[in-house]
């Protein structure tokens, strides 16, 4: 289904989760995807077949509060996002400290740094 996304922020995500729980919604998934400059974290909640998506767009290294107080099962998504993208969640119900998904390289889905050019072009004036 096409997605209608409601903007959210790290500071407000715990309250959103508490409200969603009070409405009787279950946590479907927390999806992390790389956006143009930053990362999108989309929280999806459902009641029967009615889905609601909240999204925060955050830069690398943002510390995000866990929604574990409302949804005990959120730790699987939060640990996964930590292990694949490198985000830190505070207050997770179970914190694996980076060992939930044992990857051969750290944070494999994190945006790669732009590599330095192998050849440096020197302007003509300087070269003479």
């Amino acid at each position: 289904m096409t997605m209608e996304v409601i903007p959210a922020s790290p500071a407000g995500i715990e309250k959103i989760a508490a409200d969603m729980k009070a409405e009787g919604r279950r946590l479907v998934v927390i999806t992390c995807t790389a956006a143009a400059e930053e990362y999108d974290l989309t929280y999806s909640f459902a009641r029967e077949n009615d889905l609601r998506h909240y999204r925060m767009t955050v830069p690398e290294g943002t510390v995000i509060p866990s929604i574990g107080a409302s949804y005990g099962g959120a730790f699987v998504y939060e640990n996964e996002i930590h292990d694949l993208y490198g985000f830190t969640f505070t207050g997770m119900t179970i914190d694996f400290g980076g060992t939930f998904i044992r990857t051969s390289v750290p944070y494999p889905f994190k945006k790669k740094e732009i590599p330095a050019p192998t050849v440096t072009k020197v302007p003509k004036e300087d070269a003479s």
Partner: peptide, 28 residues
């Protein structure tokens, strides 16, 4: 329930693809 999240930008390559499988959500 399985979820496939897809994002495209009008090219023949999708830009984002994430999957949430039932076993992961059954772990808790």
């Amino acid at each position: 329930e399985v979820i496939h999240y897809l994002r495209g930008n009008g090219t023949k390559y999708l830009t984002q693809f994430r999957v949430r499988t039932p076993t992961l959500t059954n772990v808790p």
